[in-house]
Computed example of a mutant assay.
Amino acid sequence: MPLWIPLTIAAAFLQNLRSTLQKQLTGEMSALGATYVRFAYGLPVAALYLWGLLAFTGAAMPEANASFLAYATVGGLAQIWGTVLLVALFAYRNFAVGTTYSKTETIQTALFGIIVLGDHLSFGAFAAILISLAGVLAISIAQSKLTLGTFWRSLGEKPTLMGIGSGACYGVAAVCYRAASLSLERPDFLVSAAYTLVIVLLIQTAVMTVWLRLRHPAELSASFRTWKVSSLVGVTGALASMGWFTAMTIQNAAYVRALGQIELVFTFASSHFLFREKTNALELTGIALVIGGILLLIFAR
């Protein structure tokens, strides 16, 4: 089995765990604050990981070039803006439509990968991405109690455009992270991915620290006050990012993000079997499509 597959599955599982921990911060800070602690508390963990890799392998510290810094900066900022747009959606009555459209991230990642890196997608992989995307949309529509008519009629509305914009930002971020790591032109992909992660987290932490200090100082205070849970969010987030960045260094970002939708299967399994939440037919159809798309991606790629 190619290494990127277990790395992506592990990253998706850890991301699901990180999201669960972030929910514990709901009463203490906004979604932006919870996003900040993921970067700020994850940075020391990622830096320690990089140091350990260099010490264990005896490799030299990578040297950042202009292309690397450009890709890392654009990717880091794009991820922040993707989060900002997603959070801003909740101010609208029909926010569910926008959040559903944000799930188009995978197909947008594929398009950006083709444009920026010239990545090639086989017919089977493209079909797998479309199938899993249909599953994700079905799950989102079912959970937000939208109708298909409402979903399609909302095209052109502001929340829809914000949702698509959020998905585009996440797609740009994924492709830029892969491009940044590859621009280092090193054979040791683990070190390249780790170094890219550290620099991206450093940029994101610096930008959000200044932003929160100027615009939302209470969120910054809350991030220190909740250090126990926030540190767990940072650790799990950093571990997940190690998997994402390494997998995207090895493989096409679109493949990685598509396989990463297995996170929805983990979420479904925990809510259905652990919390005994009821599941409707559309959700089950969506899960089946996601699993089918993932299997097609792995075996027909």
Rank of each mutant, 00 (worst) to 15 (best):
G237Q: 01
L190H: 15
L21H: 12
L214S: 08
L297E: 00
G286C: 00
V210W: 06
T160Y: 05
V172P: 01
S19M: 15
L182R: 14
G82K: 13
S241R: 03
P44M: 08
I129L: 14
F245D: 02
E219A: 13
A179H: 01
S221Y: 05
G292Y: 11
T20F: 15
K145T: 03
A254K: 06
S67N: 14
I9H: 08
I141Q: 03
P6F: 05
I164S: 02
L130N: 08
L190Q: 15
W211K: 09
M1K: 12
L296C: 06
T196G: 04
L117R: 13
G165N: 02
W51Y: 13
V37M: 05
T205I: 09
E63N: 08
I129A: 12
S102E: 02
Y36I: 06
L32F: 15
L111G: 13
Q108S: 00
A96L: 03
V175F: 00
A300F: 14
T147V: 03
R225V: 03
Q251P: 06
A281F: 11
M242Y: 09
S241P: 04
L184H: 07
S230E: 12
L148Y: 15
A127N: 02
I107Y: 06
A72Q: 05
G167I: 00
S223G: 09
L264E: 08
L296M: 11
P62N: 01
T267N: 13
L7H: 04
P6K: 01
Y195G: 07
T236E: 09
M1W: 09
T236D: 07
R18Q: 15
A288Y: 11
F151V: 14
D188H: 13
V37D: 05
E277S: 10
T20W: 15
T104K: 02
S221R: 14
L202P: 01
R186H: 09
S132R: 06
W51M: 14
L148D: 12
C169V: 03
C169L: 09
L69V: 02
S221I: 10
K158T: 13
F56I: 14
L296G: 00
I287A: 07
E277Q: 14
W211D: 10
Q251G: 07
L21Y: 14
G234L: 12
R18I: 11
T57N: 01
Y49T: 09
P159T: 03
A125W: 02
S140N: 06
S67Y: 10
H216I: 06
F151L: 15
A240E: 03
W51L: 14
W4K: 04
L146Q: 15
R38W: 09
Y71T: 05
S241A: 05
G27E: 04
L182Q: 14
L161K: 11
